[in-house]
């Protein structure tokens, strides 16, 4: 078992003929993901990697029965791609695109709430349920099916941490990159709820960073709602205030959103925080 995606997930790729879209579609197919269709406006009727391409998401979803879509569309077209995805009948949208205006995302999220559509991202590396399916750009070789659920605001840092989980002999149930933007769809708490109910997830790793206070909110949520062990890592202890550290959402503003606050909060509710990436494997092994 896993959360959000599994062997049955049927995926549509928006921006499938682009450089990144086609490269990662191939990787997803290699991994065993059921990519059933792609969309590039103006290229309907063609195929790429044996996958039929459509002009609109609605048509692609109707014809091929996709229930999930992943977006590789450039930032300036991505807002409309998101709205189109939300109106197509799929239940899950994964947005890899970085650099979408925040106000646009607030409108998209409002639309998704009305339609009952779940968004992962934007500015996300996607997600993977090892041995089941991958909808994203995460390097598959570092993952192994297992009992650790991973939720992260980061990309490569997640891979670093996952490699330590896998090298320690453990594996992952599902690993979700929730995205590095200030406004995102699924947040820590939403993912925690799902991992809490997933029988195959035995422990959870949260990977946070500076900016906002979602980590603190998650810590409070865990105290009352999650009985599974949780381990955390927080990046940005040395980040200067007022500077955006690569991710649009990673900024200490008005003196709040520091790594120190987040680590102290986690520790105050008994969540173990790794002091460096390599410790994560050992911490989880010690618990499981």
């Amino acid at each position: 078992m896993s959360i959000l995606i599994d062997k049955k997930t049927k995926v549509c790729v928006q921006g499938i003929t682009g450089r990144d879209g086609s490269f990662h579609t191939e990787r997803m197919i290699e991994y065993g993901t059921k990519v059933v269709c792609g969309v590039t406006p103006g290229k309907g009727g063609t195929t790429i990697l044996g996958i039929p391409v459509y002009d609109t998401v609605k048509e692609a979803v109707e014809r091929e029965g996709a229930n999930t879509t992943i977006i590789f569309v450039p930032a300036r077209f991505a807002t409309d791609a998101l709205l189109e995805a939300g109106d197509s009948g799929v239940g899950l949208v994964v947005c890899i695109t970085e650099g979408i205006p925040v106000l646009d995302i607030s409108k998209v999220l409002k639309f998704y709430r009305e339609k009952g559509v779940t968004l992962i991202g934007p500015n996300s590396p996607g997600l993977i349920s090892p041995g089941e399916s991958k909808v994203g750009i995460l390097p598959s070789n570092i993952f192994k099916k297992g009992g650790v659920g991973v939720i992260s605001r980061s990309g490569t840092l997640t891979y670093e941490l996952v490699s330590h989980i896998t090298n320690s002999g453990l594996g992952e149930s599902t690993c979700i990159g929730i995205g590095g933007d200030p406004l995102i769809g699924l947040k820590f708490i939403d993912c925690l709820k799902q991992f809490g109910k997933d029988p195959d997830t035995e422990a959870i790793l949260m990977v946070g960073e500076i900016g906002g206070h979602d980590e603190e909110d998650a810590a409070d949520f865990i105290v009352h709602n999650i009985s599974k062990p949780v381990v955390a890592f927080v990046a940005g202890k040395t980040a200067p205030p007022g500077k955006r550290m690569g991710h649009a959402g990673a900024i200490i503003s008005g003196g709040s959103g520091t790594a120190r606050e987040k680590i102290e909060k986690f520790e105050s509710v008994g969540i173990r925080v790794a002091s460096e990436p390599e410790e994560v494997g050992e911490l989880l092994k010690g618990i499981l």
């Binding site: 605001r153 490569t156 990046a235 040395t238 550290m245 690569g246 460096e276």
Partner: peptide, 28 residues
Amino acid sequence: SYIPLSGYIGCVVNGAGLAMATMDLIKK
């Protein structure tokens, strides 16, 4: 994406989260 700091170890990293974690580790 580059932000200067006051130290002396130059870092070249791929990914924002890993770049922050690298800075933190040097400090540690």
